[in-house]
Simulated assay, not measured.
Amino acid sequence: MHAGGRTAVEPDSAPMAEDTQFRIASVTKPIGAALTLGLVHEGLLGLDDPVTEWLPELAGHRVLTAPDAPLTSTVPAVREITVRDLLTMRSGWGVIFEPTPLQREMARQQVSPGPLTPPMTGDEFVARIGALPAACQPGAGWLYDTSMDLLGVALERATGTSLARLVADRITGPLGLASTGFRATDPARLATAYLPGPDGLTVLDPPDGMFAAEPTFRELSSGLVSTAPDLLRCFTALADGGAPILPAASVEAMTTEAITPAQRDQGVPILGPGLSWGLGTGVEIAAAEPWQAPGAWGWTGGTGTTVRVDPSRELVGVLLTQRGMAGPQDGFDSFWSAVATA
């Protein structure tokens, strides 16, 4: 474990410490997947259950005739969306890079994926998504992010329990992760978050900002705050077979490629070389970079965080920074290369 630098760019800011908290952004997704698969293992829901049982706002949803079609050019969905569709990012809603009518309307409705939590409740988020046509049929295409937020609301409704309590009871409690949750336990320990730009770094969220209070919308896609020791403990538990939060078979299912080659190609702008998608986490399928290895898995967060499990090297690595990513491929190759070499 190594902590370097300071918690903010100001020279009088506190030095970084091992227990400094970070907004881990999309590193939340594998933790959310583990939570979901634990509920599946206990029979509280099934991977192939239609989510309209808990998200009736998505019942009878429409699908665009083409991803760039006008919002009025739609056809009925050929089937209902399932829990598996949400874990595999195949609901039909998500990140759209091209300037399409759906992309513009998602931005107008404030439901586009981004670095901070949408300013609404989870119920309102689902309602706004359900009122929009999907870009593709359920299970047909890979679109990043939105599915996991829909899943989080589904889990709350399916169990009658808040996402914060589910995470506490089923993930952080059993593993003893005292510094992981949907808000900073002590804002004084929370590092300032920055975004890079042409004129340098700008503040995305200060320590007393959005993550200093209970959120109105707990995002399963990107809502957690955590520390390096907590994440090492969590992902090491999963790497060692999943106990006490998951059986080994569930970890294997989670970390096995679950999308088609065509869907993987569709996701390349986000996934990058050598990487595909399992159930809520990235999975490596080829050594496109020297540090990669088929069978390794993990994910990165847009706020500058990354976690990777590499069974071939018997390692679990965590890097938490406060510099947000400038784009999907503004990644951590140099860090993972150094780790693999070591």
Score class of each variant (00 low, 15 high):
224 L>P: 05
314 E>F: 00
118 P>S: 08
258 A>R: 09
109 Q>G: 01
297 W>D: 11
239 A>I: 03
183 R>K: 13
329 Q>F: 10
153 V>G: 06
283 V>Q: 06
320 L>N: 07
62 R>I: 01
322 Q>D: 04
33 A>M: 03
209 G>A: 03
226 S>K: 08
302 G>D: 09
165 R>E: 13
50 P>H: 10
32 G>N: 10
279 L>N: 05
335 F>K: 07
234 C>S: 14
172 T>G: 09
28 T>F: 06
14 A>P: 05
234 C>L: 15
278 G>N: 01
145 D>S: 13
201 L>C: 07
308 R>L: 11
325 M>A: 14
55 L>H: 00
125 F>Y: 15
140 A>R: 10
254 M>A: 06
36 T>K: 09
123 D>P: 08
320 L>D: 03
190 L>D: 01
152 G>S: 01
14 A>R: 15
326 A>C: 09
244 P>W: 03
259 I>R: 05
154 A>C: 02
187 P>T: 09
61 H>E: 07
340 A>N: 12
61 H>Q: 12
7 T>W: 06
123 D>W: 09
12 D>H: 15
38 G>V: 06
95 V>R: 11
130 G>Y: 06
226 S>V: 03
78 V>I: 11
275 L>A: 14
112 S>D: 12
327 G>A: 13
174 P>R: 00
5 G>T: 14
40 V>E: 04
243 A>T: 11
272 G>C: 00
202 T>D: 11
335 F>E: 11
174 P>K: 01
136 C>L: 05
323 R>G: 00
323 R>F: 07
51 V>R: 05
9 V>E: 15
133 P>N: 05
237 A>G: 11
10 E>D: 15
107 A>R: 13
85 D>R: 10
73 S>F: 10
50 P>E: 13
171 I>Q: 03
2 H>Q: 15
124 E>S: 08
202 T>Y: 12
92 G>K: 05
271 L>N: 13
285 I>G: 08
284 E>N: 13
204 L>D: 02
93 W>Q: 09
15 P>M: 12
136 C>R: 13
316 V>M: 10
247 P>G: 04
140 A>S: 09
26 S>M: 05
64 L>A: 02
189 R>Y: 00
18 E>V: 11
104 R>S: 12
